[in-house]
Write a protein that binds this DNA or RNA. Structure first.
Length: 876
RNA sequence: GGGCGUUUAGCUCAGUUGGUAGAGCAUCAGCCUUACAAGCUGAGGGUCACUGGUUCGAGCCCAGUAGCGCCCACCA
């Protein structure tokens, strides 16, 4: 049922849970939130919704920020825009892989062929046992099976919160369409020479056994020990270096000191001899060394940090890679002249033998012991806390390991990317700083390949030469029309499946794309870029990207990169950056901190509208404290709206009218017209604030105006519309009309924030079943034009005076400790001459609210009055 | 170490271009008042973080300090 008829009784109380769920169903059945595909770009408002990661559950922070975007979308819809508001699920990536691995006890082996008979049931966890190896395609199937379950619960929660998505556009980042767009993007980057492949030292997580990008790296403070290790100098002499990573000693390729460091100047150009391994390494002067750090001279190894990479590449030093992809110490052979040079290969080999196969920590312990035994540790190790790079989802420090990876060029385009950021309006504005600082601080191109399985594969194969070697330099790219492809099961043109892995045949690119390579295409995924030019033109660039500030460096950044590289455009005109939710101790709420709150239970307890109210009070970019007392205020507001509307509706019906039949023309009395002028000002202010992405201020404006309407205007007008004996027909009609027109405006002002209660009340008072726009959410946002029937040149003066006088009387009664019903025996007003006429007209309207007989009101104009109005009250 | 933000009543927050400090919640007092007691009316409560400067005048502008939060930073 879309609306109620006047004969339907207005219930005496508001049942939030039931009402909310009923309207949620109606909205879906009636397609209230559908975008009209023929709408022109300028008539649409297009939202680039964040696809939440399908890995567990949503928390109250999601509800907070998604509700804020929903409020914005609802406002735009009521402002006459066709709102394009999609939702998708981000199911690519490591968190899903890990969960699937544990849940089904399977491990991916990309070498295996696809087994179509394997099925995965998300209600059947596999228990314990070793991981069963499966093909990539089977593994991806398992991931999909599990993420679908999360997506169902997310969907239920968003619907229950009243988020106005157009569910027809639901997608998942692993579905065929998203894979196609991601692969198209990659091919376009290749074509435009933005993407390249390179074998080079890369940040590497040894647990996940994958390369990671700069954007996914975070620094963590860890405890460490500084070891002072004595090196010899060729031809005599020695020096001491300080290191926290003695295990890299066999990988040492040089030592460096600052060119102006007097202590080491005499050593430059000579060779140092590493302890234990007796490798002669150059002593290099370089600005990268700081005199006052450690001993001022440090060792360069392949690879401890990016400085090592820099020196290694500048000075064309040999590669001594001792850490393998699995984080264990690899094979190495020391010889007088090979890559692992040693003056004493036998001693070196003996020192190295026990290290082989150990993990980094164990290796460190062993090397330290050997150094001690050799008398090479100079002092007791010194405790230190230092920051170390970690993959944000990892638990071990990152290593730098040379590997073959796909990259997207960033470093040479910093200027252009900053420029793109400046074409976007950021809310709040200072968030652009985050973006610019990130771009300016980039030190690596974007490594987009991951040695993982659940993700979008690169649409690439490599020819195998006659000797079986891979011809990396001549990749075979899949044609655009064939996408999406899985090179591990699909075959490139001109080859047969039998040639896979055979000399003279081909092999698939083994990697998948960084999850951001797909997420960065959310606008193009929805606009059907390169698939449907018409639709793309209607949606791209989008209007707004809502997102959190912590992922400006990833999601926002990469999306801007892609839009620029593909089309030279910004992806959206606005970026609306939400704040965090903090718990009462001002700690950010996050899963890892264990202080999250389950949203569905909150909705059941407080109602969706009450929680939406809380979200609406938070400003963009400002962190918000989780505070249930705010829910209660929201609940109160909902109830007040219900009661006020019921009151007005009741009186209209008593007089045989419907709220919807009134127009402003019916408001004739002075005080009503004056109130309408004040309402008009508030309505316009509220709209301006929404337009300016200030939903919390807009709510505040509406809320303040509404409570004042209830406490003052309705109190003043009450007896007039109530009491047939003391009011004229015209006066009663004016009062009813004003109240009806006002509540009709208020319901719409609150509709974006409180969609359920406003729809319920709208349907009872104002909706027309026959109207295609029967829903309040398709009604027109109150505009200045609605008030055109107000007398021109009028203002809200009479209303302000009435409220002021009423306030004085109320205060007088309260201070006399008398009840509000206490009659007033005399009211004496002294006012300036100019106010005399207007007061004479409005004061009789106030008589009932003041509880006074109209004849006991005395008004005295005083040309010399120093205040506009002076009020004296005498109680009976 | 660098950057961004923030600090206003017990709590959560407004405070436009500089002009006598605001709201809600909480507290206290008074009201069963025909829409609402999940309500209404009123009261008390602030050295606007601190220091200095500009100005006739600063919560607001400038400089500095401190607390809190977030982002970033080549790990010797």
């Amino acid at each position: 049922m879309k609306s109620f008829s006047p004969s339907d009784p207005f219930p005496s109380s508001y049942e939030a849970t039931q009402t909310e769920q009923r309207w949620q169903q109606v909205w879906e059945q009636e397609g209230v939130y559908r975008w009209e595909p023929t709408a022109n770009r300028e008539d649409s408002y297009v939202i680039d919704t964040p696809p939440p990661t399908a890995s567990g559950s949503l928390h109250v922070g999601h509800i907070f920020s998604y509700t804020q975007t929903d409020i914005l979308g609802r406002f735009k819809r009521m402002s006459g825009k066709q709102v394009f508001y999609p939702i998708g699920w981000d199911d690519n990536g490591l968190p899903t892989e890990r969960r699937v691995q544990n849940f089904f006890r399977i491990g991916c082996n990309p070498q295996l062929p696809f087994d179509p008979s394997l099925k995965f049931d998300p209600s059947q966890p596999a228990g314990d046992g070793p991981l069963k190896p499966v093909s990539r395609r089977n593994f991806v199937d398992a991931c999909s099976a599990l993420t679908i379950e999360d997506e169902k619960s997310y969907k239920q929660l968003f619907k229950r919160q009243g988020i106005s998505f157009d569910w027809r556009f639901e997608y998942a980042t692993i579905d065929a369409h998203c894979r196609r767009i991601s692969q198209l993007s990659f091919l376009d980057l290749i074509k435009k020479k933005f993407a390249y492949q390179r074998y080079a030292p890369t940040m590497w997580d040894v647990d996940f056994r994958s390369a990671v990008a700069q954007a996914e790296i975070e620094d963590r403070e860890i405890d460490g020990l500084f070891y002072s290790v004595r090196f010899d100098v060729e031809g005599g002499g020695d020096f001491t270096i300080a290191t926290t990573r003695p295990e890299l000693l066999p990988a040492c390729i040089a030592v460096v000191a600052h060119p102006e460091d007097e202590r080491y100047r005499h050593l430059f150009g000579k060779k140092a001899i590493t302890p234990l391994f007796r490798a002669p390494v150059p002593i290099i002067a370089s600005e990268v060394a700081e005199k006052d750090k450690g001993t001022g001279i440090m060792m360069i190894c392949t690879f401890g940090d990016l400085t090592d990479v820099q020196i290694w590449s500048q000075h064309k030093l040999p590669l001594r890679q001792i850490i393998g992809f699995d984080g264990r110490i690899a094979e190495a052979t020391f010889s007088p002249s090979g890559d692992f040079t040693s003056l004493d290969p036998t001693q070196a080999q003996n020192a190295y033998a026990p290290l082989k196969g150990t993990k980094v920590e164990e290796c460190r312990r062993l090397v330290v012991q050997q150094l001690k035994d050799a008398g090479r540790i100079v002092n007791e190790p010194e405790k230190t806390r230092h920051s170390v790079k970690f993959y944000e989802k990892g638990t071990k420090p990152l290593e730098i390991i040379p590997s073959r990876q796909w990259f997207v060029k960033l470093l040479e385009f910093k200027e252009q990317l900053v420029e793109q950021g400046r074409k976007i309006v950021w809310h709040p504005n200072h968030m652009r700083m985050r973006y610019e600082h990130w771009v300016n601080g980039l030190n690596q191109d974007w490594c987009v390949s991951r040695q993982r399985f659940f993700g979008v594969p690169f649409p690439v194969w490599y020819p195998l030469q006659a000797n079986g070697a891979v011809d990396w330099d001549n990749p075979i790219f899949a044609p655009a029309e064939s996408l999406p492809v899985d090179p591990a099961s699909d075959v490139p043109a001109g080859y047969t499946e039998a040639q896979r892995g055979q000399p003279g045949g081909f092999m698939a690119d083994p990697d998948v794309m960084d999850t951001w390579a797909t997420s960065s295409m959310t606008p193009q995924i929805q606009s059907h870029w390169m698939q449907d030019g018409e639709r793309h033109r209607r949606l791209f660039p989008m209007d707004v990207r809502p997102q959190a500030h912590e992922i400006i460096r990833t999601w926002a950044f990469y999306t801007i990169v892609k839009a620029w590289m593909h089309e030279g455009q910004v992806p959206w005109h606005h970026a609306a950056i939400s704040g965090f939710i903090m718990d009462s101790d001002r700690k950010k709420m996050s899963k890892s901190k264990g202080n999250v709150i389950v949203p569905l239970a909150l909705i059941e307890e407080h109602s969706a509208d009450a929680i939406r109210y809380w979200a609406a009070r938070g400003r963009l970019g400002i962190d918000t404290i989780f505070d249930t007392s705010i829910f209660k205020i929201g609940k109160k507001l909902v109830l007040k709206l219900f009661n006020a509307t019921r009151f007005i509706d009741m009186h209209c019906k008593t007089h045989g009218m419907r709220t919807q039949t009134f127009t402003l023309k019916d408001a004739t009395s002075d005080i009503d017209v004056a109130f309408m002028h004040s309402l008009k000002a508030d309505v316009l202010e509220c709209g301006r604030q929404f337009e300016g992405y200030e939903h919390s201020l807009a709510l505040q404006t509406a809320e303040h105006a509404f409570w004042s309407f209830c406490d003052n205007f309705l109190e003043i007008v009450k007896s007039r519309i109530d009491n047939e004996s003391t009011s004229s027909e015209a006066s009663r009609r004016s009062g009813l009309a004003t109240a009806s027109v006002a509540i009709r405006a208020f319901l719409r002002l609150f509709a974006p924030v409180l969609p359920h209660v406003t729809e319920e009340l709208w349907s009872r008072c104002f909706a027309m079943e026959s109207d295609a726009h029967w829903s309040i959410h398709r009604s027109k946002w109150p505009q200045a034009a609605e008030f055109n029937e107000l007398p021109h040149g009028g203002d809200d003066l009479a209303y302000r005076l009435a409220v002021e006088i009423l306030g004085v009387v109320r205060k007088h009664k309260a201070q006399a400790n008398r009840g509000p019903h206490t009659p007033v025996s005399q009211l004496s007003i002294t006012c300036t001459d100019s106010l005399h006429e207007v007061l004479k007209r409005i004061l009789p309207e106030l008589a009932d609210a003041i509880v006074i007989h109209p004849t006991c009101i005395k008004i005295r104009p005083d040309a010399d009055a120093n205040a506009q109005v002076q009020v004296e009250v005498e109680l009976a």
